[in-house]
């Protein structure tokens, strides 16, 4: 009995040392494996959560339904009127795009995804999405919404991926400020609240609240140029540089549908 106990303890010690000596590469592979293992629970749980959420949203009183009906009717009339005008604009837009080659230059190949789970830890801003390697997703791909940049993929399993949000301290993005020559680095903060910090600006940068900040798209980086990052909230000069606080373009608290940029069209 004593021999078995000692053998078990020795094996445990060996296992502990082996775990401690694993490098980042093999650990990332193991993490992808774990995400894959947990993906059935995450995916079905995410679907159930979404159904429960939508059930609560759909329940309305008769008065609310009547008000909603009136609102939708009015909106429908307005949209029909707008639609007639937009047809002409669409044709003009297509024509201009063809001339400028805009589509070729700035369109992305997007894979739509649904957020199925939030932060794995208290101090990291991450979400899990229901797309993985089998959908063409790989690590370090930008994730966006129609509002702006969300973050980048980190660990990828067959059917689930983890996205490091732009509001995380570790997600650093080269950025430029609209209407100026100012460039800096955007990153999240450790404190919750979802604000972004734009650092390494010039001390004399005269940034005004409301100015938009976009990705700078540095060569060798993973984020393409021109994706909205946020809006300047405040600016202050520090000892060595200028620092602006930004409201993120895509609110991380209300993320539901996102797109993974798998490449250019």
């Amino acid at each position: 009995m004593k021999k078995i106990l000692i053998t078990a303890l020795v094996l445990l010690a060996v296992a502990a040392i082996a775990l401690c000596s694993l490098e980042a590469g093999p650990l990332l592979h193991l993490k992808s494996g774990l995400l894959g293992l947990l993906s059935p629970v995450s995916r079905s749980g995410g679907a159930v959560k979404s159904s429960i959420g939508s059930l609560g949203k759909d329940l309305m009183t008769l008065d609310q339904l009547q008000a909603e009906y009136d609102r939708v009717l009015a909106e429908n009339r307005k949209l029909r009127a707008e639609n007639n005008g937009l047809r002409d604009l669409q044709q003009e837009n297509n024509h201009l795009r063809e001339i400028l080659g805009y589509r070729e230059r700035s369109s992305f190949r997007l894979v739509p995804a649904t957020v199925i789970g939030h932060d794995a830890g208290v101090w990291w801003s991450t979400v899990k999405i229901n797309r993985g390697a089998r959908d063409g997703i790989a690590a370090d791909m930008p994730v966006i919404t129609d509002k702006g940049l969300v973050g980048k993929t980190t660990a990828v399993s067959d059917s689930v991926s983890e996205v490091l949000l732009v509001t995380d301290e570790n997600c650093k993005v080269a950025a430029k400020v609209e209407g100026t020559k100012e460039q800096g680095i955007v990153a999240g903060t450790r404190s919750p609240g979802g604000e972004l910090q734009l650092t390494f600006l010039s001390k004399l940068a005269d940034l005004q609240p409301g100015q938009k900040v976009y990705t700078a798209g540095v060569s060798g980086g993973i984020f393409p140029s021109g994706i909205a990052l946020g809006t300047v909230k405040s600016f202050r000069a520090r000892e060595l540089d200028g620092m602006a606080v930004l409201d993120p373009a895509a609110d991380p608290a209300s993320l539901e549908e996102v797109f993974v940029v798998t490449g250019a069209k």
Binding site: A15, L19, G25, L27, L30, L34
Partner: peptide
């Protein structure tokens, strides 16, 4: 002894879930 094995499993799972690799280095390893 099984509790120690259980603790190793917990460490592996928690370590992997919190793993963030920055510039080829894991921020909090195992």
């Amino acid at each position: 002894v099984p509790a120690l094995g259980f603790a190793l499993l917990a460490a592996l799972l928690q370590g992997l879930m919190l793993l963030q690799v920055q510039a080829g280095q894991s921020e909090i390893g195992l």
